[in-house]
Simulated scan of single mutants.
Amino acid sequence: MGITSAWAISAHDDTVVGELAPWVLPLVAAERDDPQMQERWRRWCEAPLPDHRTWSGTPAAPAEAAALDAAVASFQRLTAGGEHVQQLYDGTDDGPCLMSDVWERDRSPERMFLSVWSKDYALASFFHAVGPRRAALLPGWCGTFLLTAAQVRATLPDIERALSFTPEERAAAEEQDWLDYAPDDESVLAGPLRQWRQAAEAGLGLCGANVHIR
């Protein structure tokens, strides 16, 4: 059976962020501190993956093919989100519900970036397209975070650096973003920066969540 994943970044005032903090922040910290996640992050930073079009079907020596398969699998596990963060969507006995208490809190599309994919991961395509140096500028862990309005303003320069490209850099990043967008879809290279800028201007905080929804 296939999966459906979502990477969402929603804007909220600091009252909502304060309500969410005791629930969200420990799960993000647990995911970040997981030794397996740290090892996957280290492997990717030390050896970023090649052009995604070479990941399968490209002739290679058996040892090279096995090494690439292992690196791709490790990267995919890193960017798929882990069991701690998944509790944000699955819920706990004493925790809020990501769908109703976060995503549906404000239905204005301008206050949310949402990228949903069947059998794919928006964050994986995003991280591969921008590379580890830029990805490391995002707060939280692998697309999941919770920021107050002040933290949004403080982190905006890093997000600007992560997602501002020369024409040549943008063309290269777009080639490595493998998601097949519909005409009205917002790309992973555009949506997060728009959301950060709008939240900073409006004095809002942000909640990011990289989870399976099915």
Rank of each mutant, 00 (worst) to 15 (best):
M1W: 02
S5I: 00
S5P: 00
A6E: 15
A8I: 13
A8L: 10
V16E: 06
V17S: 01
G18Q: 09
V24A: 11
L25S: 14
R32Y: 08
D33P: 05
D34K: 13
P35W: 08
Q38C: 09
E39D: 13
R40V: 03
R40D: 05
W41R: 14
R42T: 04
W44P: 00
C45F: 10
E46M: 14
E46F: 07
A47N: 14
P48E: 07
P48V: 06
P48G: 03
L49C: 05
D51I: 06
D51V: 09
H52G: 09
H52S: 10
R53F: 04
R53C: 06
W55N: 09
G57E: 03
G57P: 09
P59V: 05
P62I: 00
A63I: 00
A63P: 00
E64A: 15
A66D: 15
A70F: 03
S74F: 10
R77E: 13
E83P: 13
Q86V: 03
D93Q: 10
D93H: 10
C97H: 14
L98M: 01
L98D: 00
E104Y: 09
E104S: 12
R105W: 09
D106S: 12
S108E: 12
R111Y: 02
V116N: 02
V116F: 00
V116D: 01
W117E: 13
K119L: 12
D120F: 10
D120T: 09
A122F: 03
A122H: 12
A124C: 12
A124F: 04
S125Y: 02
F126W: 14
H128Y: 01
G131W: 06
P132W: 04
P132Q: 06
R133V: 14
A135G: 05
A136Y: 03
L138T: 12
P139V: 07
G140C: 06
C142W: 05
C142S: 10
T144H: 02
A150E: 15
Q151W: 08
A154V: 00
L156N: 07
R161C: 08
S164C: 08
T166Y: 04
T166A: 05
T166K: 07
P167I: 10
E168R: 11
E168T: 15
E168F: 04
E168C: 03
A173Q: 02
A173K: 07
D177C: 11
D177V: 08
Y181N: 09
Y181K: 08
A182S: 10
P183V: 06
P183C: 01
D184W: 08
E186C: 12
E186A: 10
A190E: 13
Q195D: 00
R197Y: 04
A200V: 08
G203H: 07
G203M: 09
L204R: 05
A209C: 09
A209Y: 01
N210D: 04
V211W: 00
H212D: 15
I213S: 00
